[in-house]
Design a protein around this nucleic acid. Structure first.
Lengths: 188, 188
DNA sequence: GCGAAGTTAGATAGATCGGTCTATATAGGA
DNA sequence: TCCTATATAGACCGATCTATCTAACTTCGC
C-alpha cells in the first residue's frame, strides 16, 4: 500500500521546510516534489500555515515517540541519561542541520502566533520530560538541573550543524555527565 | 550629523531581518521603514544578498568589539568567565530573540553558500576566542573545554528565547562555572 | 554659480507568491 | 451499476518579490 497523498505531502513538505526554510519554500515546489497537484494540497490542508502546523505536529509526535521508547528501555535511575542519549540519536538521524522547531520559532515569531506557540510548546514538552526524568532519577534536590540539561541539549542542536556530529554528541554526553555527577555529589 | 542613508539602511535591515526573518522581509519594507527610496538601497548595495552580508558583517563586528572590551577589562586568569559574561550581556541587550547568525544559517543553508559561510565563520570566530581565553587562563589541559563552553553558549542563545532571560543567563553562568571548576579540579 | 554625487519619484520588468475555480478523470464501495 | 470521494490539469486572481531604468531634484564643495 503506497503512502496516501496526504502523507506524501507531509513528508515532502517536512523535508523542504527543514532544508530550505519555511518562507523560502513555495507551495508549488512542495506539490511538484510530492508528485501531486496543487488542489490536492488544498484539499487536505486549509492553507500553507495549516500545512506547516501539521508538519511540526507530526514531527514532534515522532520525536516524542522515539524518546518514550528509549525511556521505557532505560535502566531505572538512569532515565535522564537515557533521554539525553535518545535526543542525541534523534539529532544524528533526523536533525543534522539543526532543530526544526528553533527554525520555526525564528521564522514565525512575527508572522504567526499560532505556529510560534506550536514550536515553543514542543520545546516546553522536552523540558517537562527532562524534569520528570530528573525527578524519577532522584536528582530533583538540585534546583534547575533539568533546565540546565535542557540548555545543553539546545546547544547540542546548534552544534551538530557547526561541528563534527560525533564530536558534538560526545561533548553533549560529557556535559550531561558532569552536570549529573556534580548534582549527585552536591546531594551528600 | 544624522546617520548616512547607508547606515540607516543597515540598521533598519538588521532590525527587520532579525525580527521578521530574511526571506520574509522584502526590499520594499526595508526602504519604507528606513525612509528611503528603493534606488538608494541599490545605490549602496548590489543586491539583497549583499545587504544581508553587510548586515551580518557589521553585527558580528559590533559583537566582537564588545567581547574584546570585556576581555581587556578582565582579571587575568578569569578571561574565560569574562567572555561568557560578555556574551550574556550581548544576549540581554541585543539578541533576546535568538542568535541572528543561527537564523541566517538556517535560512541560507540551501540558498546562499556565501551567506551560510559568513554566518558559520562568525560562530567559528567565537569558538576560536573561547579557545584562546581558555588557553590564557591555563585551562587547556582539559581537552575540548572550549568546545563544551561554546555549546553552552549556543544553548544560551536559544534558551533566552524560550525561558526567562535572567534565569537563562544565570543558568549559563552556573554551567560555565561547573565546567571550569571541574576542569581545574581534574588538573590536580 | 558650477558641477558632481547622491537622492527622489515612479514606471516597468518578469517571476513567484498563496489561493481559488472549473471541468474532467479515476477510483472503490454499496 | 451507479455514487461518492479523491485526484488531475490548468486557467486565473491579486499581491508581492527582486531588480532596473529614466528624469528631475537636492546638496555641497570648489
Amino acid at each position: 500500500m503506497p503512502a496516501s497523498k496526504r502523507d506524501q505531502l507531509l513528508a515532502t513538505a517536512e523535508r523542504l521546510f527543514y532544508e530550505q526554510g519555511f518562507h523560502a519554500t513555495g507551495i508549488d515546489r512542495i506539490v511538484a516534489a510530492a508528485g501531486v497537484v496543487r488542489m490536492t494540497l488544498y484539499n487536505h490542508f486549509a492553507s500553507k500555515e495549516a500545512l506547516v502546523a501539521a508538519v511540526l505536529t507530526a514531527r514532534h509526535r515522532r520525536f516524542i515517540a522515539s524518546l518514550e521508547a528509549a525511556m521505557a528501555a532505560a535502566v531505572p535511575g538512569q532515565e535522564t541519561l537515557a533521554l539525553i542519549e535518545a535526543h542525541g540519536d534523534w539529532l544524528r538521524s533526523h536533525s543534522q542541520h539543526g532543530c526544526i522547531m528553533a527554525k520555526a520559532m525564528g521564522e514565525f515569531a512575527e508572522h504567526s502566533a499560532e505556529l510560534h506557540a506550536l514550536a515553543a510548546a514542543a520545546k516546553a514538552d522536552l523540558l517537562a520530560r527532562l524534569e520528570a526524568a530528573v525527578a524519577r532519577d532522584g536528582l530533583n534536590h538540585s534546583p534547575g538541573l533539568a533546565r540546565r540539561l535542557f540548555m545543553v541539549l539546545e546547544g547540542s542542536n546548534t552544534a551538530v550543524a557547526l561541528l563534527d556530529t560525533a564530536t558534538a554528541l560526545a561533548d553533549t554526553r560529557e556535559l550531561a555527565d558532569t552536570l549529573i555527577t556534580t548534582a549527585r555529589s552536591d546531594a551528600r
